[in-house]
Each structure stands twice: as C-alpha cells, then as structure tokens.
C-alpha cells in the first residue's frame, strides 16, 4: 500500500499525533457524532502533545508522509499542567526549521482541540487534507526509494 504518486489518484497521507486527554477524545467525539472527514489521516495516540519528539515528525516526513499535525489540549488546559506549552514553543521552532530545509511549513501544523470539540477536529483535519492536497506530494524530505 505505498503512497500512490500518479497525478490522477494521488491521495495525501497525514499523520496526526493526538494527545490522549483532549484531541484523541475530540476525535472520538467526532466519531460518536458521525462527523465525516476525508480518510487521509492516521491518528497516533500519545499521552501528551509534549511527548512528541521533533524526531518523530522528521522520521514521518522521511518515510513519505505528506503532512503532520500535532494536536493537544488548549494552552492552560493541559492534563499534565504544562506539556502543551513546550509543544507550542517546539512547533514554532520546528516550522522555521522545516522552512529552512526547504519544506513547505504548512505541512507541519499544531492545533489545540479539546475533548469536547468534535466539530473542530473535523474542521481542522478537513482543512489540513485540502491544504496538503493543494501542496502535492512531499518529495523534499522523503528518503530515496
């Protein structure tokens, strides 16, 4: 099931790091409320958005993922008190790094989605999928295959 890159039927593959307490629950709520969104995203559960090592993001891009979203609790609402503040700072730095190496910074995003925000989850991933589709496949950081 490799990422198809023929121009006509290419579909982006997007990895979402979702914190267990807010965004994962928000995605569950989107499911519970039967809110539809494109089937391009794959959710990877982490305890806290602060657990997401930039290394994970880089590895994903190297392996050919077209977009990465890191999502956690709203600032101030972190289950672990301060985890998402680290995420926020890392995200700003990370975007600049990715831009510096020549990747479209829009491919890497961070969002705050709480456990009660099913509609926001739907909205964010739908928009993200559209944005990444417009950007086309990630060729920049991808390992040679």
């Amino acid at each position: 099931m490799s990422v198809k890159e023929t121009a006509s039927n290419w579909e982006p593959k997007i990895l979402v790091f979702a914190c267990n307490w807010c965004t994962y629950a928000g995605a569950d709520l989107a499911g519970l409320s039967r809110l539809q969104y494109p089937p391009n995203i794959r959710i990877l559960r982490v305890p806290c958005s602060g657990r997401v090592n930039p290394q994970f993001v880089l590895r994903a891009f190297q392996r050919g993922v077209d977009g990465v979203l890191v999502a956690g609790c709203h600032p101030g609402d972190c289950h672990y008190v301060t985890g998402n503040y680290f995420t926020r700072r890392r995200y700003l730095l990370m975007q600049r790094l990715l831009e510096y190496v020549g990747l479209d910074p829009e491919r890497f995003q961070a969002r705050w989605i709480s456990g009660s925000e099913g509609p926001k989850f739907q909205e964010v991933v739908t928009k993200l999928t559209e944005d990444i589709k417009a950007l086309g496949p990630n060729r920049k950081l991808r390992d040679a295959q």
């Binding site: 490799s2 593959k13 990877l44 982490v46 305890p47 994970f56 590895r59 392996r63 993922v65």
Partner: peptide, 16 residues
C-alpha cells in the same frame, strides 16, 4: 509503553 521505539515503529508502519 510510549517509547521512542514504539512510536517510531508506528510511524514506519504507516508509511510502508
């Protein structure tokens, strides 16, 4: 239970 190895294995598995 959420080791670097586990998460990277998941990332790799997604991109096969």
């Amino acid at each position: 239970h959420f080791t670097n190895e586990q998460i990277l294995a998941e990332v790799d598995a997604l991109c096969l």
